[in-house]
């Protein structure tokens, strides 16, 4: 198989996922397939509870599917052990969530450089790279401010920087603008678009915001655990 042509491609094939609740099996995903390409933003839209976030976490290797395939750069992920999945999460995947999920005991710079330090990058190099991103995101004067002292928009920008600092191939964003006003929402989306284009990242965006989804390269609509064609 020619894997070079699949670099930066996130492929999901016939994914099924269910869980048990009160002795009842709840089918969340029923044969979902999609393709996210590098440099593009793929939006997933749909009503609450249709399985968008679950799909995102499965693609981010945070959970295990019942069946189906997920491949990144041509490499299949479903049979990897937890250790390998953890390494891939660190090196290939960036996450942005609706809530910034910054560690409040750390300042902006320390939050951003965490994935780099985890991957064993030299501290000086990590700081330089984190500061570079901070600068790109317009937070130069706030790098040493504790995370909890930043505004909502700033916190989300720091979260984006953290997700990008390890130069991931894939950025998975779960309603990253869900908690922001329209101005900040647009700014965040522009950032995602910019990084997708400039750094060749495949961005998968779960959103309720039709305006943003319309600006995406590809929009997938989900309903009852399936992608509507």
């Amino acid at each position: 198989m020619d894997t070079s042509s699949q670099d930066g491609v996130l492929k999901v094939e016939n994914l099924y996922y269910s869980f048990s609740e009160n002795d009842l099996d709840v089918q969340v995903l029923s044969g979902v397939s999609l393709l996210a390409k590098k440099g593009e933003i793929t939006s997933i839209v749909g009503p609450s509870g249709c399985g968008k976030s679950t799909l995102l976490y499965l693609m981010g290797l945070l959970d295990h599917a019942d069946s189906g395939k997920i491949s990144m750069d041509g490499q299949e992920m479903q049979d990897l052990n937890d250790r390998k999945r953890t390494v891939i999460r660190n090196q290939k995947i960036g996450f942005v969530f609706q809530f910034h999920f910054l560690i409040k005991e750390l300042n902006a710079l320390e939050n951003i450089r965490l994935p780099l330090l985890k991957s064993g990058t030299d501290r000086k190099l990590a700081d330089d790279k984190a500061l570079e991103l901070i600068s790109e995101l317009g937070l130069e004067d706030k790098w040493n401010r504790p995370a909890y002292k930043l505004s909502g928009g700033e916190q989300q920008r720091v979260a984006i920087a953290r997700s990008l600092v390890n130069s991931p191939s894939y950025l998975l964003a779960d309603e990253p603008t869900g908690n922001l006003d329209s101005k900040n929402s647009e700014m965040v989306f522009d950032l995602l678009l910019k990084f997708a284009r400039e750094k060749g990242i495949a961005v998968v965006l779960v959103t309720h915001n039709d305006k943003l989804s319309n600006l995406s390269d590809q929009t997938l609509r989900m309903m009852d655990g399936q992608i509507l064609i």
Binding site: G60, L62, R83, T86, V87, F95, F97, L114, P115
Partner: peptide, 10 residues
Amino acid sequence: AILRSMGFTP
């Protein structure tokens, strides 16, 4: 949870 998502092991 967020640490785990960025590559911290259990």
